[in-house]
């Protein structure tokens, strides 16, 4: 049922990576509960621009929950209070008239703030470059059914592959650990015969890159899984641990 609500936003404003940030409050009137969270921020930015102020900088792209660009730590949860959705899929019907909504950037040493709510997540790209791929020789395309893959493995690999790399796991983790992301990326390949060949090298390379970039150590709190918009399971972390320990024992 559509209605309009009045809200107060408490948003983190920070001019640049080195500047000191602070919270600033904004009131918004007549926000439709049908609008998405990002549309509400668009309304705010339009208001700010009309008043001659700097708009709030935030990451977004596809706005349909698949690109992994949107972030935002809303009222104590990455991607907001709704379950298993990204911020762009969060709607204002989850909020009530008169609510004060606190919006913060991902806070982690691995994701430095660029400006306002936008953080630098290129660390994830560096981890992927360290080994999140399979080496293939170009040439004729092999037949898709030439290598049989058990259904259960294919399903689990597909579940791991739904990770969009948004970084909510790092944002939710009290240790700033990227283990859920790395484990999903290791699992999606380790479970399939094509990825199996380089599995040991991949696990070692991606994990050491993760450590090098200053992410923390997993203590199995499970906050990452609880906040993940794609419901990636922490059993992937067990698989990464297994792959890594096996690889190191073999060396």
């Amino acid at each position: 049922m559509e209605k309009n609500i009045n809200i107060t936003l408490r948003i983190w404003r920070q001019k640049g990576p080195k500047e000191k940030g602070a919270f600033k409050e904004y009131s918004l009137q007549n926000i439709s509960t049908e609008s998405s969270f990002l549309e509400m921020l668009d309304v705010l930015n339009e208001q700010l621009i009309n008043n001659g102020e700097d708009p709030v900088v935030f990451d977004h792209d596809c706005r349909e929950g698949i690109c992994g660009m949107c972030s935002l730590y809303i009222n104590g949860h990455p991607h907001g209070p709704d379950e298993d959705v990204t911020t762009c899929q969060l709607h204002m019907r989850k909020f009530n008239d008169g609510d004060v909504i606190t919006v913060e950037p991902w806070r982690s040493a691995g994701f430095p703030v660029i400006r306002d709510l936008m953080v630098d997540r290129s660390a994830f790209d560096k981890i992927m470059q360290a080994g999140g791929y399979i080496s293939v020789n170009t040439g004729g395309v092999p037949d898709a059914n030439a290598i049989p893959i058990p259904k259960a493995n294919a399903d689990e690999a597909m579940d791991a592959a739904t990770c969009i790399g948004c970084g909510a796991c790092v944002a939710a983790c009290k240790n700033g650990s990227a283990m859920l992301f790395v484990s999903a990326k290791v699992s999606q390949l380790a479970l399939l015969p094509q990825g199996r060949i380089e599995a040991a090298r991949r696990a070692k390379a991606m994990l050491s890159k993760m450590d090098e970039l200053g992410f923390g150590n997993c203590t199995n709190t499970g906050a990452c899984e609880a906040e993940c918009p794609k419901n990636i399971s922490i059993t992937n972390i067990a698989r990464l641990n297994r792959e890594f320990i096996k690889a190191k024992l073999k060396d």
Partner: peptide
């Protein structure tokens, strides 16, 4: 882990019920 968390702490943080 504390170093990895960064200098700025969240103002509002809620523990998910699964944790």
């Amino acid at each position: 882990n504390r170093r990895a968390r960064g200098k700025d702490r969240y103002k509002v943080s809620e523990r998910p019920k699964e944790v």
